[in-house]
């Protein structure tokens, strides 16, 4: 049984068919890659999965629950968290607070409790701090907890974004080009981190990536998107040797 079932997904912007009859089935615990040339529609797929765009047709099911057309906020509460291609952190908040915003729905107390600092406030904030520090430690960010997020170096900002997404306690984690702008060393480190997340949190991960070393290194299955359509789908090694895929990437 698949955890994420996407069938016949499509979206049109005016006359442009950005994504057409897109299919994706991800089982629990899989590390799945979505690749394709620039402009193929990968991020559009992400945006549909997370409710930023409403699909024109098709259905998205998470654990057999239809989440097509739900709002971003609801979809996150259903269990999909994401990171962004261009990093979107809460820049004026501390690293710790960025993760605590991610914990927003997991740890609740009312605004009144917060303003009057009732006992529940202290208790919950303490739990939040502990949980957030725990997450930051996984990403080796615990020493920077009190820095402003915008003062972190690039690689760490990417990591913080992943930590924040994980704080929402998702079933499925979507990573949009996590290695973009990273040097080979940082990419290597990132690959280890992604493996670690999957093992430690028992997470299902779908990632978009251009770095083939990363893709072939950690993804078990791949879907290749070209001009909004699925070009190939299956085990990583098979897909990467598919002549159609090579043609789409390298030309004739």
């Amino acid at each position: 049984m698949a955890m994420l079932d996407v069938t016949n997904l499509g979206i049109s912007f005016g006359g442009l068919r950005a994504v057409d009859s897109f299919e994706l089935h991800i089982k629990k615990g899989e590390l799945y890659g979505l690749i394709g040339p620039n402009g193929a529609g990968k991020t559009t797929v992400f945006n549909m999965l997370t409710g930023v765009y409403k699909p024109t047709d098709g259905t998205i099911k998470l654990d057999d629950k239809n989440i097509t057309g739900m709002k971003t906020t609801q979809i996150n509460q259903e269990g999909i968290a994401r990171t962004f291609q261009n990093i979107r952190l809460f820049k004026e908040l501390s690293v710790l607070d960025n993760v605590k915003v991610g914990l927003h729905n997991g740890y609740q107390y009312s605004t009144i409790t917060g303003i009057f600092r009732l006992p529940k406030y202290r208790k919950t904030e303490k739990l939040m701090n502990e949980k957030a520090m725990e997450l930051l430690a996984v990403f080796d960010l615990d020493k920077e907890a009190n820095l402003l997020a915008s003062n972190l170096p690039y690689g760490k900002q990417r990591k913080l974004e992943i930590a924040r997404a994980l704080a929402t306690n998702p079933k499925l984690l979507l990573l949009d080009e996590p290695a973009a702008g990273m040097n080979p060393n940082e990419t290597k480190e990132l690959m280890d981190t992604i493996q670690l997340i999957r093992d430690k949190f028992d997470m299902t991960i779908l990632l978009i990536e251009h770095d083939m070393k990363l893709v072939s290194g950690i993804c078990e299955k791949l879907t290749v998107l070209n001009f909004g359509q699925v070009l190939a789908q299956g085990e990583t090694s098979e897909v990467l040797n598919n002549p159609e895929v090579i043609k789409a990437y390298l030309g004739e």
Partner: peptide, 26 residues
């Protein structure tokens, strides 16, 4: 106290990045 509570953090998160705030379920 509002600024330093769960709700205040959510408000500041929205100020800093609306799309990201939505994506973490706020």
């Amino acid at each position: 106290n509002f600024m330093n509570s769960r709700s205040g953090r959510a408000v500041m998160a929205i100020r800093d990045n609306r799309i990201a705030a939505e994506s973490v379920g706020i």
